[in-house]
């Protein structure tokens, strides 16, 4: 997948753990882990909204397009 989720960077910047974030956005740790490890195929707007709200960021800061990954597909 050429779209990468920069959740680990944002968590590091905000000094938050994945468990804390899961509690705040009311998601399971397993689902957040899928997102963090870039295994997700799609993301709901509601999830994106909750993550942006809790991490105080824009969707563009959370997602990035990686040309190297696109070439590998």
């Amino acid at each position: 997948m050429a779209i990468r989720v920069r959740l680990d960077h944002l968590l590091l910047d905000r000094r938050l753990s994945l468990t804390d974030l899961a509690d705040r956005v009311d998601m399971t740790l397993a689902n957040l882990s899928v997102l963090k490890t870039n295994k997700a195929r799609a993301i709901r707007f509601s999830t994106l909204e909750a993550l942006c709200r809790e991490l105080q960021c824009q969707p563009g800061e959370l997602l990035e397009w990686s040309p190297e990954d696109a070439e590998g597909e």
């Binding site: 998601m27 689902n31 957040l32 899928v34 997102l35 295994k39 997700a40 195929r41 799609a42 993301i43 709901r44 999830t47």
Partner: peptide
Amino acid sequence: DEDQSLTV
């Protein structure tokens, strides 16, 4: 089903 299960 796989897409659905990997939609977060």
